[in-house]
Design a protein around this nucleic acid. Structure first.
Lengths: 240, 240
DNA sequence: CGCTGATTTGATGGGATTCAAGTAGCGTGG
DNA sequence: CCACGCTACTTGAATCCCATCAAATCAGCG
């Protein structure tokens, strides 16, 4: 883990990627100062508002993004319109399918999002040059694979109640890892429809299960999106 | 793709890994002759019969396997026993979670299986030394991630009928990529229970859907496991 | 305030599970 | 060779969870 840290010399880290320092997971954290300098000339900080599409399903991959702030959702759609969200990317995740001409899924801003955008050719050159970056990308791919498989269990084997509890737990733990104790306070970065599409449910079922969690005193809900988890332990107990 | 081929010199490929040549996907195909020679001293060809556990969920990772023949299933289990299969590995896939002390899931022989087993330390040293091997492993991780996400759509959004059709199609296309035309003939490498655990269904539902596909003239079933797909087109049309 | 889209709540129906028999395939041993 | 038992699979009936359809309520905003 820590060997990647050698590459980082704070004084030389461009402002663009400053937030990468925080957790050492973004691609910038895997580069040497020289590479970072090179990179900084070709990257653009891009703002997206909720709902913006970063890459379409089947579209040509022209650039890659590093999430700096906000949440990006990855989704796939069947011909008849049924949709499934297949991943959520939080800062400082890397977004984009390497080694593929076209994106196998849609990437869309789930909340307001800030990304560090790199042209495809540029990133691929860097990947060739930097073993540390390749290692970083392999790490993320493996972590995402673990997450995808964990979620397959949720999709295939959990009840609606367990699914909703599992998602709330996932978000509570991802969005603000610093909060301690039994309680968590956060805004859902996604609509009821997004939640339904993530869990393989309908919005009505999601709503009913949320209401049930509220009625049972495990969470409170205000203004639809604002969630307070009153007892992480009891929430975990409902995740199946 | 083809740049990996440079590493292969047929005359020097140890017998152990000969079948790797066929499709250029196994780890052996990513090594130089020197590395292959080194590897061959530390690998063992291991036979497993259907049902054998290669690695348990949560068990320490002591070695990695390269599937040479047969099918390995990856599964995860909830505390109360509900099980979900999260992946199938066909030859010449690599099995084992890199960069993790313990396996996040169970790996089990779904059919009789032959693997090329490498001690953990050995493989990790090779990974450090061989950029081509790292690249190969990144490729597989990305491909598995694509497959996992594709399957999430199936688990979350497809009906039981579509799920069963999707699995039959998956297996038909994986097991024998050489067969051409509209028909496919193969033996299911897994029981009805395995299929149910893969699709997030019960064995009864799987059975009913198979019967329906048979009644509709899309497949024939003999001896439970022996499947003939009569029309790939019509099968695809049922995949949702 | 009144419009609009998002969410909740209610009533109903259907698809998948559950529970329960029944059947087929297969090795064993009489 | 066939009875026997075993396991895997199939089939049937009842139940239940979640989807669907419909309506009400809420939140945000000009």
């Amino acid at each position: 883990m820590d060997m990647t840290r050698r590459d980082i010399h704070n004084s030389e880290v461009p402002a663009l990627c400053r937030s990468c320092e925080v957790r050492h997971k973004g691609m910038c954290g895997a580069l040497t100062p020289d590479e970072l300098l090179l990179l900084s000339k070709h990257t653009r900080q891009v703002q997206h508002t909720s709902g913006d599409e970063l890459v379409g399903e089947g579209a040509d991959v022209e650039s890659y993004d590093n999430v700096m702030r906000g949440v990006v959702k990855l989704s796939k759609t069947l011909e008849d319109g049924r949709q499934q969200i297949v991943g959520l990317q939080f800062a400082p995740d890397f977004v984009g399918r390497l080694q593929a001409g076209e994106s196998p899924m849609t990437a869309e801003a789930a909340s307001d999002v800030e990304v560090c955008r790199v042209p495809r050719a540029m990133l691929e050159r860097l990947v060739e040059q930097s073993p540390t970056l390749r290692k970083r990308l392999l790490e993320q791919a493996l972590r995402e694979l673990d997450e995808a498989r964990e979620w397959m269990v949720t999709l295939g084997r959990k009840t609606a109640a367990e699914k909703v509890a599992s998602l709330l737990l996932l978000i509570a733990l991802h969005l603000d890892p610093e909060q301690k104790g039994e309680k968590r306070l956060f805004d859902l970065p996604m609509s009821r429809l997004d939640i339904a599409d993530f869990l393989g449910l309908t919005i009505e079922t999601v709503s009913r299960q949320m209401t049930k969690l509220k009625a049972d005193g495990i969470i409170t809900i205000t203004a639809n999106r604002h969630i307070e988890v009153l007892s992480l332990t009891r929430l975990k107990a409902r995740c199946g």
